[in-house]
């Protein structure tokens, strides 16, 4: 019996492919994509109140009410732009801070030091996102926090603090793809560049950066998407500022169709981002 099955697999590649694909497809396409499509449709429903004004139900005929409200009420546009701005800053800051570190890890450090550094940058992922958030809250506190006591200055609670703390939280997600990308970059390419007379800066611009582009894009997918969907850090250090995530979280239990509609904003942004990223080969490096 086993032999016959084995022979069938060896002969019929399609049979093997079908068996390998069926479970992941069932899970990701049916459960996940199915739920996403349902959410997309929900965005075009609306709330309906019965004549007594007491019972609210969801009217499942399709309307553009939510989209219109998103467009008309400027607060939602401001919130979306604020979130995008933060995601952009977080991504640039993380990439700029991570690049020299990843370069040192992959190309300069000795083997033991490199191993220790890989552990050192991944360990904070275990320390608890919320715990680190509250620790930052204490450090940033304008009334008696460490930053104020030691340096005499703190950005206080608001947009700047949320962006700083989010950059901190997602930093490992940027370092690791960059390190992996640099590690795969053969040393001989860098040596060749030096032999041809390029100084370190020129080698970095003309050899390292172009080769590293997929890795940078892969890291930026994490930092961008994680920022677009975050709402806890804003609650902890963001003061009265809101991000898309805060609005979606609040509206979810009150007005599901509207929450669904607003969540289409980050979905649209990320889908476009992914399509662009796919062209650079970054998806293989996530």
């Amino acid at each position: 019996m086993r032999r016959r099955v084995a022979r069938a697999f060896a002969r019929h590649e399609r049979l093997r492919l079908g068996l390998e694909l069926s479970a992941p497809i069932a899970w990701l396409v049916v459960i996940y994509i199915g739920s996403l499509v349902a959410l997309l449709v929900t965005a075009f429903y609306r709330l309906k109140t019965d004549p007594t004004g007491l019972i609210t139900t969801i009217d499942s005929t399709l309307h553009l009410d939510n989209i219109r409200r998103l467009w008309d009420e400027s607060v939602y546009r401001t919130t979306a732009l604020r979130t995008l701005e933060s995601a952009g800053i977080v991504t640039v800051v993380d990439a700029a801070v991570a690049l020299p570190l990843a370069f040192y890890m992959a190309k300069v450090a000795s083997r033991p030091a490199r191993r220790a550094l890989v552990v050192a940058v991944t360990m904070p992922l275990w320390a608890g996102y919320l715990v680190k958030g509250y620790a930052w809250r204490a450090l940033l506190d304008p009334s008696g926090g460490a930053l104020h006591e030691i340096f005499g200055h703190t950005p206080g609670f608001g947009f700047a603090s949320t962006t700083i703390v989010l950059s901190y939280q997602w930093f490992p997600y940027m370092v690791i793809p960059l390190y992996a990308g640099l590690d795969r970059l053969p040393d001989s390419l860098l040596e060749a560049s030096t032999d041809l007379g390029a100084k370190a800066g020129r080698t970095f611009r003309s050899v390292v950066l172009p080769q590293l582009r997929p890795a940078i894009v892969a890291g930026s997918i994490f930092t961008f998407s994680l920022t677009l969907g975050d709402f806890y850090m804003n609650r902890i250090v963001g003061g009265t500022n809101e991000f898309i995530g805060n609005v979606v979280y609040r509206e979810f239990s009150v007005n599901l169709p509207f929450a669904a509609a607003y969540s289409l904003v980050p979905v649209a942004i990320m889908v476009v981002y992914l399509l662009v990223a796919r062209a650079t080969g970054a998806l293989e490096e996530l």
């Binding site: 929900t42 998407s225 969540s263 980050p266 996530l286």
Partner: peptide
């Protein structure tokens, strides 16, 4: 897709399903 889309989208999509 599940790691590239923000967590809150995955979350409300699955919960409403």
């Amino acid at each position: 897709l599940p790691i590239a889309l923000p967590g809150i989208v995955t979350a409300i999509a699955l919960l409403s399903a």
